[in-house]
Amino acid sequence: MNLMTGMLVTRYSYQHDIVFRVKHINGDKVLLHGEDIRLEADAPVEDLRILPEDDVRKREEEIKEKEEYSYRLFRQDYQLMKEKKDYEYNKEKPRSIQRFQLPVKVLHIDGDRLYLKKCIDLYQRLGLQVHGVYVNEKDLPFEIDALIQKIQPEIMVITGHDAYSGSKGNKKDLAAYRNTRFFVEAVRQARTWSPNLDQLVIFAGGACQSHFESLIRAGGANFASSPDRVNIHALDPVYVVAKVAYTPFMEKVDVYDVLRNTLTGEKGLGGMETRGLYRTGLPYVETK
């Protein structure tokens, strides 16, 4: 088999359940990254099947359909929130006075360049201001302070790859996870800058099988993966961020409503009640 980096493959041993992209080849061992879900895995070359072109096209159509469905759900929620806000404002204030909105600043730190680009494209489609930075998971604790000081975000996403290894301990043992400890330490450091969960909203965790309890309780994240140790979709963090960014700051973000718009749901994501960050002011003054 003429296997090369960048190719899409599936694994015979797992009945071709997940599509991976070949990240690195070392002899007969191959490092794989999930194409749509955030999963990192190793596999021998003989266990891999190169995805045929027809399957690639079919898969792309199915994924696009799922992503469009989540996008439509979010847009419906956003429209309802906007109509409610406009109604309350017009009932109490003179209609001649125009409002303005303060954009929410998002810092998205990702351990995968390809996923980072996909996420940034969706942030822009949703009208959110985002600063995207690639940082290897192991370097997160060393980079987080400088990035927060430079960007001064209201929302921060710290994500990348992770994995649980049963040979290193049970699912409650933090040492059994590939990168969760780096996410936890990064969140802890971020919380030294902003201890208040409503002033800096944090989504943290790798895509697959991160130690959810540590990220929420020990780290201090508002939202995290993965309660049931399942894989999450690459774009799920963006929908969580968008829900927080477009919820008025006098209202709380219902965790169930957040998860409803994601592609993974409550098995892969969870979190704490959090105040929204959408703020308006008046009067609107045009800038030249």
Score class of each variant (00 low, 15 high):
residue 3 L to N: 06
residue 6 G to S: 11
residue 11 R to E: 05
residue 13 S to H: 12
residue 19 V to A: 06
residue 23 K to M: 13
residue 25 I to S: 02
residue 34 G to Y: 00
residue 44 P to Q: 03
residue 45 V to E: 13
residue 52 P to Q: 00
residue 55 D to T: 06
residue 60 E to A: 03
residue 60 E to T: 02
residue 61 E to V: 08
residue 61 E to I: 04
residue 63 I to N: 03
residue 66 K to A: 11
residue 67 E to F: 07
residue 68 E to L: 08
residue 71 Y to I: 10
residue 71 Y to N: 01
residue 72 R to Q: 12
residue 72 R to Y: 11
residue 73 L to F: 01
residue 73 L to K: 12
residue 75 R to H: 04
residue 76 Q to T: 08
residue 78 Y to I: 04
residue 80 L to Q: 08
residue 81 M to F: 06
residue 82 K to A: 15
residue 85 K to Q: 14
residue 86 D to A: 01
residue 92 E to C: 14
residue 95 R to A: 15
residue 95 R to D: 14
residue 96 S to T: 05
residue 97 I to M: 03
residue 100 F to W: 05
residue 100 F to E: 12
residue 101 Q to H: 11
residue 108 H to R: 07
residue 109 I to A: 13
residue 111 G to S: 13
residue 112 D to R: 01
residue 116 L to Y: 10
residue 118 K to Y: 10
residue 122 L to Q: 05
residue 133 V to C: 09
residue 133 V to G: 07
residue 135 V to L: 13
residue 141 P to H: 07
residue 141 P to R: 11
residue 142 F to W: 02
residue 142 F to S: 12
residue 144 I to E: 11
residue 145 D to Q: 13
residue 145 D to L: 06
residue 145 D to Y: 07
residue 146 A to C: 06
residue 146 A to H: 12
residue 154 E to Y: 02
residue 156 M to C: 06
residue 159 T to A: 10
residue 164 Y to P: 12
residue 167 S to M: 15
residue 173 D to I: 12
residue 183 F to V: 09
residue 185 E to W: 08
residue 187 V to T: 01
residue 197 L to N: 10
residue 198 D to H: 00
residue 202 I to N: 04
residue 202 I to Q: 04
residue 203 F to P: 05
residue 205 G to T: 08
residue 206 G to M: 08
residue 209 Q to H: 11
residue 209 Q to G: 14
residue 210 S to P: 04
residue 210 S to E: 08
residue 212 F to S: 05
residue 220 G to Y: 03
residue 222 N to M: 05
residue 222 N to F: 07
residue 224 A to M: 03
residue 226 S to D: 04
residue 230 V to I: 09
residue 233 H to I: 09
residue 234 A to T: 04
residue 234 A to I: 05
residue 236 D to V: 05
residue 237 P to W: 02
residue 237 P to F: 03
residue 240 V to Y: 02
residue 241 V to Q: 08
residue 243 K to F: 10
residue 244 V to A: 04
residue 245 A to E: 02
residue 245 A to D: 03
residue 253 V to I: 11
residue 254 D to R: 01
residue 255 V to G: 06
residue 255 V to L: 08
residue 257 D to R: 05
residue 258 V to D: 03
residue 261 N to K: 12
residue 262 T to R: 15
residue 265 G to Q: 09
residue 270 G to Y: 01
residue 274 T to S: 06
residue 281 G to A: 09
residue 281 G to P: 12
